[in-house]
């Protein structure tokens, strides 16, 4: 597993993660990894044969190749940011950028997720699955210190050479299109707190996805594209974080425009 630049500081802009929380994440990582030979192939089978989902083969190969190259190229932290249309995007995105074999060999390449508590951690079996599936649930609109703690956890995981997937719009695109103005500043906060942090922007859309929904349709055929950027800002404090968040969503909006131009 790669150890990124910047050492193993476990804080984001002043929020230090307690040792107990860091240990908890390490235990979760170990258990998830231990059981990964079961749940990673099973998830792929469910998506392919249960839901009949497919990712365009040429685009999938290109995205996987690019992701492997980026992971090999540098030890700097890598955050994955994507557009968001359904509650199952993170599963499909993982599938689109890496094969089962790759994730079993390089477990850090399989991104952590930050699902909303109300959807993915509302009862014991959902919590168990979320735990196994490398999730750090977040409660939207919760106390600011709780949100800061989640950001610190992501920062800590990135410092361990893990990757994390965050949706910079903060929720599913209500217009069905990437909205730069809704950029959640927490994404920028993670990036600005990590020197040299790269962002892999992933644009994923099914041919039948006109707008947001809970679940992609059965038999959906997805298109995917990726672009790696290293956003920087001349501004400071909250403005810098917001600026970085908007650069990321602007990149996703640009990828979306190219997707629709090419249809």
């Amino acid at each position: 597993m790669q150890a990124p630049q910047g050492g193993a500081r476990s804080e984001v802009a002043g929020v230090r993660l307690p040792a107990r929380e860091r240990l908890g994440l390490r235990v979760q990582l170990a258990l998830s990894r231990l059981l990964s030979p079961l749940w990673i192939p099973l998830t792929s089978v469910i998506m392919r044969y249960g839901f009949g989902w497919r990712v365009d083969p040429a685009e999938c190969a290109a995205a996987r190749g690019e992701y492997r190259r980026i992971r090999r190229e540098s030890r700097a932290p890598l955050l994955i940011c994507a557009n968001h249309l359904t509650m199952f995007d993170s599963f499909v995105i993982g599938w689109a950028i890496g094969s089962t074999g790759v994730f079993l060999r390089d477990f850090g390449a399989l991104p952590w997720n930050t699902p909303e508590t109300v959807h993915f951690a509302s009862n014991w079996w959902k919590r168990a699955l979320a735990y196994l599936y490398k999730c750090v649930p977040v409660q939207r609109g919760s106390d600011r210190t709780e949100v800061a703690k989640v950001l610190a956890k992501i920062r800590f995981l990135l410092s361990l050479g893990q990757t994390a997937l965050i949706f910079p719009e903060g929720g599913r695109s209500r217009s069905g299109r990437v909205d730069v103005e809704t950029a959640a500043y927490g994404v920028g906060r993670i990036v600005t707190a990590l020197p040299g942090c790269r962002v892999l922007c992933v644009y994923l859309r099914g041919e039948g996805q006109e707008t947001w929904s809970d679940l992609p349709r059965r038999g959906e055929r997805f298109h995917v594209s990726v672009a790696c950027i290293e956003p920087k800002s001349d501004q400071r404090g909250v403005r810098a974080s917001l600026d970085v968040s908007r650069q990321i969503t602007a990149q996703l909006a640009d990828m979306e425009q190219r997707y629709f131009d090419g249809r």
């Binding site: 929020v15 800061a148 404090g237």
Partner: peptide, 17 residues
């Protein structure tokens, strides 16, 4: 920030409830 001509850091936002 604009109204009071101040700069607020990321960690300051965490204390605003």
């Amino acid at each position: 920030e604009d109204e009071f001509d101040i700069e607020i850091a990321d960690e300051d936002v965490d204390s605003v409830n």
